Simulated scan of single mutants.
Amino acid sequence: MTDQKTISVVGVSGSPTHPSRTTALVAEVTSAFATELGGTATVVELAPLLGELGAGPFRGQLGPNAVEALEKVEAADVVVVGSPAYRATYTGLFKLFFDHIGQYALVGKPIVLTATGGSDRHALLVEHQMRPLFGFFQSLTLPLGIFAGERDFEDYRIVSDDLEGRIQSSLKRSLPLIRSHLDPDEVTIDAGFARPHDF
């Protein structure tokens, strides 16, 4: 019997500010999934990487910290993503980061969707904006996203039992899918999709 690889759960906070409620949510969810899977938890905050991510239009022009963050996400077994609602969608910083992710680097990868907003009217950000983005990447977007509002936090800490309950519900719904996906006995099938020419 071969030794099992430690499962890597990487969170990405698309907030342009620090401290951030989004980062607090992403860190909590990343830790919860890593604990249940017996893996490691890492959180990538995009706010400090803004200058490096904007250094040029191509990945080779980005700074070393930005490239390292991209590689962590691409190498992860499970990715937790989160963004605050800006103009009814995810932040430009969040989109800029994922513009540099390899087009086929997230194929089949389990993705946990989270978002924060000033009120519940932003809750559909998860379904209407984030889920289609990771559909483009052909990722395994997990079924129950997690949205949090301002009242769920105090001093950038989660204080809401309701939010903790939503996190636990997401775990219960998602873990069977993740464990099935990560089962080393399963056969990985190459999708064989056509790759368009770079442009």
Rank of each mutant, 00 (worst) to 15 (best):
G51I: 08
L177F: 11
G14K: 03
V43C: 08
P132H: 13
G11T: 05
P132D: 13
A115I: 03
A75Q: 13
L177M: 14
R87L: 13
S119P: 02
A115V: 01
F193G: 15
F58E: 13
H128D: 14
S169L: 09
H197N: 12
R121L: 07
L49R: 03
E52A: 01
G192M: 07
S160L: 07
V12F: 05
I167G: 06
Q138I: 04
I146V: 15
R157K: 14
K5A: 15
T2F: 14
S169Y: 02
G92K: 04
F33M: 07
E68V: 14
L182D: 09
G149N: 00
L140E: 07
A41D: 08
F137T: 08
G60W: 10
G54I: 02
K72S: 11
E36R: 15
D3C: 06
F147C: 04
T2H: 13
A32M: 06
T141W: 00
Q168I: 09
R131Y: 04
P176F: 08
V112P: 02
P84D: 04
L124C: 09
Q138C: 15
Y90H: 12
G39V: 00
K72G: 02
V29S: 04
L142Q: 08
T42C: 11
M130A: 09
E74W: 11
V12I: 10
A76C: 13
N65T: 10
Q61I: 08
R195E: 15
T89M: 13
G63F: 08
V79H: 10
G135Q: 12
A191L: 15
K172H: 08
V26T: 00
S169T: 01
T42D: 14
V44Q: 10
G145I: 00
R195D: 01
V80Y: 08
F147P: 08
A191Y: 12
A105K: 07
D185P: 07
L49A: 07
G14T: 06
S20D: 02
V187Q: 12
T188M: 02
L144D: 05
F58Y: 14
M1T: 11
V73H: 06
I7N: 05
H128A: 15
A75D: 11
A41Q: 06
R21L: 02
E150L: 13
T30Y: 06
A55M: 12
F97N: 00
G118A: 15
K72H: 13
D99F: 01
T91Y: 08
G145P: 11
D99H: 11
P196L: 12
H122P: 10
V9M: 06
P143S: 08
S15P: 11
H100N: 12
V80N: 02
D183A: 13
L125P: 03
G82D: 03
D99I: 09
E71K: 14
F153A: 04
I178Q: 06
E127W: 00
T2Q: 14
T42K: 14
G14Y: 06
M1N: 09
V29F: 04
